[in-house]
Design a protein around this nucleic acid. Structure first.
Length: 179
DNA sequence: CTTTGGATTGTCT
DNA sequence: GACAATCCAAAGA
């Protein structure tokens, strides 16, 4: 686990596509990610450590959870201290009923297709901020089958908007936005 | 199908 | 006081 994450964020972000991820048995296949590093103006870590981004400077394979736009949670995996991968979309596979209940929706394609949606579906809040991915309630399994990964621009940022560090499972119907 | 504007609040300047 | 790694509903084409 340690070895897998202790690499540049874009590399980890690509390798996470197709991985199985669950929180307390609820989750699915990671189909969309974005990379952020401490040398990247769009990153929370760019201007150094603060109260909010403390966990982004944590150890490899730990979790950084932040509140977005005052009302959503977003989930990141720390690759190296100061660098992280935003988990943007999942293909829902397990715990579908729980997800539907938490989201108040039926439609599979809308359950986990977006960083805020995914956190609501999996029950992720800042209670988990700073926790290790190697321990409960997390469960992460690397992809085994070959995948084709598409690349594009990151969503919702104004700084460094030209860096192509958004990655997605080619052709997936569960992306937050087409690549 | 695409575009637009409102909701909502902790964090940092 | 401004802003933010978003989401949703409503309106337009």
């Amino acid at each position: 686990m340690k070895v897998f994450f202790d690499r540049p964020a874009p590399t980890v972000a690509i390798d996470l596509i197709g991985a199985t991820f669950e929180v307390a048995g609820v989750g699915g296949l990671i189909v969309e990610t974005e990379a952020y590093t401490d040398e990247d103006p769009a990153s929370h870590s760019f201007k150094g450590q603060t109260r909010r981004n403390r966990a982004m400077f944590g150890s490899s394979a730990s979790v950084y959870v932040y509140r977005s736009y005052g009302m959503h949670w977003c989930l990141n995996f720390v690759s190296r201290p100061g660098s992280a991968v935003l988990i943007r979309a999942l293909e829902p596979l397990t715990g579908l009923d729980v997800m539907r209940q938490r989201r108040g929706l039926d439609r599979l394609a809308l359950l986990c297709s977006g960083p805020g949606r995914l956190c609501q579906a999996l029950g992720v809040t800042d209670d988990l901020d700073g926790w290790s991915l190697a321990e409960d309630p997390f469960h992460l399994v690397s992809p085994n089958e070959p995948r084709t990964v598409s690349t594009g621009l990151r969503i919702g940022i104004t700084k460094a908007a030209d860096i192509p560090w958004r990655f997605g499972l080619n052709g997936s119907a569960f992306l937050s936005k087409r690549l």
